[in-house]
Computed example of a mutant assay.
Amino acid sequence: MVLGLISLAAMVPLTATSVLSLQSQAETRRSQGVDNAWKTNKSHLRARASNRTPKDRKPLFDGSKVVLHDGLLYVELQSSAVKRHPFTGYFLAYPDSDYDGLVSTISKEPPQLNWIFLDTSSLQIRHGLRTEAETGITGPFGAVMVAPSEERRILLEGWEGFIAVESNQPGLWGLYFDRYDDALKGRVPEGRRTVELELVHEDIEGDSQQS
């Protein structure tokens, strides 16, 4: 790995060269017998209300997806009139760490990548350059495979603690992580509805991080 590229990644967007450098960490893990090949496939994230969601809220999230908007990650309902850039990314070894981070493009053109991270103050999931990401929690991100469907659901710090919080924009709910397992106590504006989520990893057929 070229260490100079890692330090540069803190100041500029991820480029194809820096991605290949970081990817060498994942290749090392695979050579040690860990099958992580699926992690480098470019994917979308589908949001689904958990089984514990009240019946009046659960149908709202049918067909919903995770999108990026103004530095934040949101759940965009199928009913939303405005369509924003969907999460389009993959797992990537986080620089100078022993865990996987998560990256996504932030637009179709140019295909710039941002790191996904948790804002430790608001507990909202955000995206940004490495300098921004390192102000929060950058991982470990992972996934759990659920039988019998073999779908993969996203984990942060080893568990599913994702919560959608209704925003003031129609069809758009903020994506949060209930890090302290207290239902985001003191962080949700009064009167805003919340929904416990499962984030389902969906490969983009015929695509990968090299494309």
Rank of each mutant, 00 (worst) to 15 (best):
K65C: 07
D100V: 03
S80A: 15
I154L: 15
A26L: 15
G128Y: 00
K58R: 14
V34G: 01
H44I: 09
Q25T: 10
Y74F: 15
L129Q: 10
F61P: 02
A143W: 10
A93C: 08
D178T: 05
W38N: 07
A16Y: 05
S24D: 12
L175H: 04
V165E: 05
S31M: 14
K185I: 09
V34W: 08
Q169N: 04
G71I: 02
L77M: 06
V188K: 04
E157A: 13
K42N: 13
L184T: 08
G89L: 02
A143C: 09
I204W: 01
F141H: 04
V19G: 09
D100A: 11
L199N: 06
L175N: 06
E150K: 12
S43Q: 14
S167T: 15
G33L: 11
F177W: 03
S79F: 04
R179T: 08
Q78K: 15
R29C: 09
W38E: 10
G63M: 13
T135Q: 15
E132M: 09
G161Q: 01
E198Y: 09
Q23K: 08
L129I: 09
Q78L: 11
G158L: 07
D56Y: 09
V103K: 00
T28I: 13
Y90M: 07
V2M: 09
K65Q: 15
G136I: 05
V103A: 04
D98Q: 11
D119T: 06
R193N: 10
R193V: 02
D182S: 06
A47Q: 07
F141Y: 12
H127A: 02
L14D: 03
V200R: 05
V144P: 01
P54A: 10
